[in-house]
Design a protein around this nucleic acid. Structure first.
Lengths: 375, 375
DNA sequence: GTGAAAGCGCTAACAT
DNA sequence: ATGTTAGCGCTTTCAC
């Protein structure tokens, strides 16, 4: 900056004004032009360190998460958060926080860095508690719930996942709809199951316990699924996730049935590897990982800056099967998940023109909250 | 720091010495103790910004990658890199570099930050070219190849993957071994196929073209796999990856065969969702994503600091099915991949005591390099 | 053993 | 419309 000032025969402050675009009506345009030219020639890059030291703001956020990796669904949350952060001029640090590992050291490092805000994410919708050290700072929770709400957060609308998936099967003509559940009584299992029951109820279809089970994976899961299908012969199956839906395919192969013709199946995750590997491709409710990450970064930056980057159109998601919810909510935000149509439901993919199945009512938010509270 | 100095009745420089552990024999121990106590009381955190401004080093690296997310195999590279970086006192920025997107803006930001080094990673082993802007800086390439080698890099030993997988099947008694290949002539396809042929040759088994094909995914892939199996009735199948191995399972279900008893299968990726969902669980060659990320961070930090953190035992991988290769190599490093034993091969998982199948010779590195060069 | 002081590159209040 | 100057918090040289 000193060099630029010297070469352009102006003072350092003038250079600073120009470089920071605060020269409107303060610096003569031709001088400003010269400064830009010289800066270019010299290959000038402002020193972020010095700038932050002076301004007290680092334009940096930290993404703290369990298993940055170990789940295959992981990356899109990071992707979405990075995308929003980048568009808004922020850099994002990544911190892996295994449940077992003590992250106080990392938090100290973050405090030393003067990170402007924190995204605390989980890769499966779980109960968490944010380390108390962070409570005084700007924190957003993504894809998780705190038992007592302290920080703004976003998570999938699990009730609606169950409701919409079931309603989609009903819309395709299914009347005996099985639910292959998850053996862990997690937020997701409870919410999706409630949605399933509500959709049946709204369609006047009686709930039949024999059509549901709860499984893990591997041979016991496959056997349980086969038994359920053998015993009850459903015409549609809503699986807790895509992996569990695979067992329905296995059953179909064994019994000479064709998914999408003899039997409809819908999963959850829209897991790329599974949904595009299965034949026919599996219709699935997509968990909006990208969108949640994107929302999280927008939210934390809005808290830092006191503005609303979404309302101001300063940022565009690269992907939004699920529309980005608004930021003006400091409590829990539920995000509605989209069904990604493939070919595993009788009648084939829904075209835009086709009437869409009834969706869960707006009240679903309270319903889920209640479901979860009693879980 | 000023506050500490005041409260401890010493000068700022003394505080600095103590905080930075450079007080040995220079500051009286009791004074040092006081300083630590006061620092603790005041909740002092050194200001990394000021420190970096002064020292010119940020202890920060950038992880630049395509599709941070969109592949499900993604995260472990990040995980490994973050793990090593953290243990060595570095923070890691994440930058998503979609092939289409212009990342010069991001690079400018990195230059502004004064990032100490760059990891340039891909999530599928591909040819890349590192942006020339980075050529003057410290760069390590992970899971990719440059057409002309400029930067140190690490990638999976694709030849050995093919060799070891095939040898494993031979060891289990298979003699008619099919290869379900990939329709893209990528580095991985070429290398694994060469390894497959070499293993057959070394075992004195003639190569039979009819036992191999190359498929994509979905119905055409399933049909091609079924046709191959119908036509040739192999006793073992080496699949390019786990997703393609699934079609062998589908075939088996349709024909009442049992994988692991009537037919052996081995995949590549050790993709969690697939390998633990299939019945029986799929034995697979694991791509050492964590290990490559870990190596990449160690390597870039060794270049920055001029030391060898691995040799100095300053760092421990959380996971190493594949042992971390040494850092003293500024050209390409190939990493040998481990077979993760599950239950899809006749005779069951290999115990430690069992004799292991012959492995590709040490010369495989040259062989792969050659294979790849002519690809 | 300890302290004073310069300066890393930049911003912003103030002076001209 | 432009220049001067005082720090941001820290490290490090040098003097005591």
């Amino acid at each position: 900056m000193k060099d630029i000032a010297a070469k352009a025969c102006v003072s350092i402050s003038t250079v600073s004004l120009v470089i920071n675009h605060r020269d409107k009506g303060r610096v003569k345009p031709d001088i400003a032009a010269t400064i830009w030219k010289v800066a270019e020639e010299l290959g000038y890059h402002p020193n972020a360190m010095a700038r932050s030291l002076r301004s007290g703001r680092t334009h940096t956020i930290a993404f703290i998460s369990d298993q940055v990796a170990t789940t295959p669904y992981a990356g899109e949350i990071i992707h979405g958060a990075e995308d929003a952060a980048r568009q808004l001029g922020y850099m994002m640090f990544i911190i892996d926080a295994d449940d077992e590992r003590d992250i106080s050291g990392d938090i100290d490092r973050m405090l030393s860095w003067g990170v402007d805000g924190y995204i605390y994410a989980k890769f499966a919708n779980r109960y968490i508690s944010v380390p108390p050290t962070l409570d005084d700072l700007q924190v957003v929770v993504v894809n998780a719930e705190e038992r007592t709400v302290i920080h703004p957060r976003i998570e999938p609308d699990e009730f609606s996942i169950g409701y919409d998936a079931t309603a989609r099967l009903i819309h395709a003509g299914c009347r005996r709809i099985a639910y292959i559940g998850c053996d862990e009584p997690a937020i997701a299992q409870v919410g999706r199951f409630k949605g399933y029951r509500q959709a049946l109820k709204d369609a006047g279809i009686p709930f039949d316990k024999r059509l549901t089970n709860r499984v893990s994976h591997g041979r016991p899961a496959l056997e349980a699924v086969c038994k359920l299908l053998d015993d009850t012969h459903p015409d549609g199956v809503f699986a807790f996730n895509d992996a569990r839906a695979v067992y329905v395919y296995d059953y179909a192969f064994q019994h000479g049935l064709t998914i999408g013709e003899d039997l409809s199946v819908i999963g959850v995750d829209n897991h790329e590897v599974i949904c595009d590997t299965t034949v026919p491709a599996l219709t699935s409710v997509e968990l909006p990982h990208y969108e949640m990450g994107f929302w999280g970064a927008c939210k934390i930056i809005s808290m830092i800056e006191g503005t609303d980057p979404i309302a101001q159109n300063r940022v565009t998601p690269a992907y939004n099967a699920a529309p980005t919810p608004p930021l003006d909510n400091d409590g829990p935000t539920l995000i509605r998940c989209a069904i990604i149509e493939k070919k595993s439901i009788v009648g084939g993919p829904l075209k835009d023109k086709d009437s869409t199945p009834a969706q869960a009512e707006e009240t679903s938010e309270q319903t889920t909250a209640a479901a979860v509270a009693t879980a």
